[in-house]
């Protein structure tokens, strides 16, 4: 049916247009964005938890490390971090592999403008298929996102840990719990209610930051919207059209708005659950409403 698009009109033309292999690229890229969020959010939370625990550690070097991580990463502009760090990380990995895999290779790694490692040290290998290169690029993006958002999450969790009433911890100690037990059994379960508003902010910001994937060379929804929306002359496509970027970006707007709205609804539910039985104003309100 789609073999001769120039003969088609109206809906059938649109149906064929929206199902070209190129449009499939756009639809898949929504999956890329969702996958990024699905992997990055828990990883960043883990980084945040590690950072916050380190920052309140009794062992000084670990504490310094935690505080430095939070301060440094939060202070560097996101864009600078995304542009610089990814290249540095990629070259760092290749450099280490170069040292291990071909130590006998002559010549320095940096020659003029070029960064040269032996063929075996390339990451991924030059002869890997394109999808491996794309997956590798995606993984670098996930790590970078996790480090950046982990630092913000660490600060939120650090604040939440200090917000848990001192009396709770004292009681735990009075029952003879060790430092570790107090941390895991009393502090951690109670801190989430204080952390959630901050974490939900981060989640919203993370959703809206996914177009940064485009900066990292991953073909995300913004890339495809721009590519598909740009005007097309009849010489190079069966579906010539004018500048349709407005429609594609409008579609992205709808996607992001509905996604953040859905997130809000889910987060409100989680908040209500976490508030239950807590010695906070909202917890007290819940108790009165039930009574």
């Amino acid at each position: 049916m789609c073999s001769d698009p120039s003969a088609l009109h109206g809906f059938s033309w649109l149906a064929c247009y929206l199902t070209t292999a190129k449009h499939m690229g756009l639809y898949w890229s929504f999956g890329t964005v969702l996958l990024l969020l699905a992997i990055t959010a828990p990883t960043a939370l883990l980084f945040g938890f590690g950072g916050a625990s380190a920052a309140r550690s009794r062992f000084a070097p670990l504490r310094w490390f935690g505080k430095a991580y939070i301060a440094l990463v939060r202070g560097v502009p996101d864009i600078a971090f995304f542009l610089f760090f990814v290249i540095a990380l990629d070259q760092g990995i290749e450099y280490v592999r170069h040292l291990f895999l071909c130590p006998s290779t002559d010549g320095p790694v940096r020659q003029g403008n070029d960064f040269i490692v032996c063929a075996a040290a390339k990451m991924p290998l030059g002869n890997s298929p394109q999808w491996v290169h794309e997956t590798y690029g995606f993984s670098l993006a996930v790590i970078t996102f996790a480090i950046v958002y982990g630092a913000f999450a660490a600060n939120v969790l650090f604040g939440a840990m200090t917000a848990v009433p001192r009396g709770q911890l004292e009681t735990a100690e009075a029952y003879g719990m060790s430092h570790r037990q107090t941390f895991w059994r009393v502090l951690v379960p109670q801190m989430w209610v204080y952390a959630l508003p901050g974490l939900s902010n981060l989640w919203m910001v993370l959703i809206k930051a996914t177009p940064l994937l485009f900066l990292l060379g991953v073909e995300d929804i913004v890339y495809w919207a721009r590519e598909l929306g740009g005007s097309k002359t009849p010489n190079y496509t069966d579906y010539p059209h004018g500048d349709w970027r407005m429609w594609y970006f409008f579609f992205l707007l709808v996607f992001y708005l509905s996604f953040t709205r859905l997130s809000e609804l889910v987060l409100n539910r989680i908040m209500a659950k976490l508030t239950f039985g807590q010695a906070t104003a909202a917890g007290e309100k819940q108790r009165r409403a039930a009574a």
Binding site: L101, A119, A120, K122, P124, L125, G126, N127
Partner: peptide, 16 residues
């Protein structure tokens, strides 16, 4: 992880 690619890299002729 470091050595996994070694064998494959021997036949490096792919130009990107």
């Amino acid at each position: 992880a470091l050595t996994a690619g070694l064998a494959m890299a021997e036949s490096h002729t792919t130009v990107r």
